[in-house]
Design a protein around this nucleic acid. Structure first.
Lengths: 160, 160
DNA sequence: ATTGATGCAAACCCTTTGCATGAGT
DNA sequence: ACTCATGCAAAGGGTTTGCATCAAT
């Protein structure tokens, strides 16, 4: 695990520098650092700014716009997935080999990963009934997780 | 149909002024106009700014912040639903009596409404497996609609 | 008369962009 | 060398907020 962008060959489908180079993109220290942070916290769903903070622990001068542009690039290349958990900012994770989906708790903000099969026949059903092909990209479902009470407290409450 | 906020009694579960008043909220001409625009275009999924434009056809001086605050109020009271179709701005619709969900096409941006039953056993499945209770609020699923080709054209493409 | 709602302007957050400089190939 | 990627600063879009005034109760 913890494959790096500078490592060559032998990955299943995880990126190496060749992935970027093959498409005429350059491997910079910033990109490598951003990628490393992503794969070292694969389930953290970091926002661009959180990612930037972690990258700056190693490369203190990295600019936010570089992070945004790099994330765009990695998403375009299919190496990174962008998700929206309804928090007002995008979150990112390295692309897994097998698609998975997110159950986001509206009370506590926790995120549960579920495998494709857990959606059951939903995809086929939507395909048959509406001709709608569910996205390859991860699906996010909102609700209330096991640990949180179903009904909200009287006081208005936000993500912790 | 086209019930207004100032109409009394007899609605199934659609709001009347009493809904607001019962909770110590005031019925203003702005709120009534905003509500009227919403119910007169129940499936338009208007953004706050689009809504404001339409409201201004009647009440030319209505401020955007009033629209935002009113929408917050109506959402809090359960009269309006807020949705996020991945366009960068929230969209709103009057709450229906029966929950429905949205299939959003990533290619053309079209939105298909589906009834709760079309999700099949998904809710129970998630409940059983993960103790996760799918949101009462509408669920949005992203994918590609019947009319659009599955694979994107070579040129990068956004919502039209 | 009270007090919540409005309008206005400014601030906010996340993200994008123009441009000169710097680094990867 | 060539050109893409970076840093910086500024702008952008959607949304929120502080405050004085206005209007619903």
């Amino acid at each position: 695990m913890n494959r790096s962008l500078t490592e060559h060959g032998h990955g299943h489908r995880l990126p190496t520098s060749t992935v970027l180079r093959e498409r005429g993109r350059r491997l910079t220290v910033q990109r490598a650092a951003i990628w490393d942070v992503l794969v070292s916290a694969p389930d953290m769903h970091l926002s661009a700014e959180e990612l930037a903070e972690r990258v700056r622990e190693r490369l203190p001068q990295v600019n936010a716009s570089t992070v945004y542009r790099t994330l765009d690039t990695l998403v375009d290349e299919g190496l990174v997935l962008r998700a929206d958990f309804g928090t007002g900012r995008a979150v990112f994770e390295p692309a897994h080999e097998h698609p998975h989906h997110h159950l986001v708790c509206e009370r506590c903000g926790s995120v549960t990963h579920i495998h494709d099969e857990e959606l059951g026949s939903l995809g086929e059903r939507l395909q048959d009934r509406f001709g709608f092909r569910l996205s390859d990209r991860e699906t996010t479902l909102f609700g209330v997780c096991r640990r949180c009470p179903s009904s909200p407290p009287t006081e208005r409450e936000a993500y912790p």
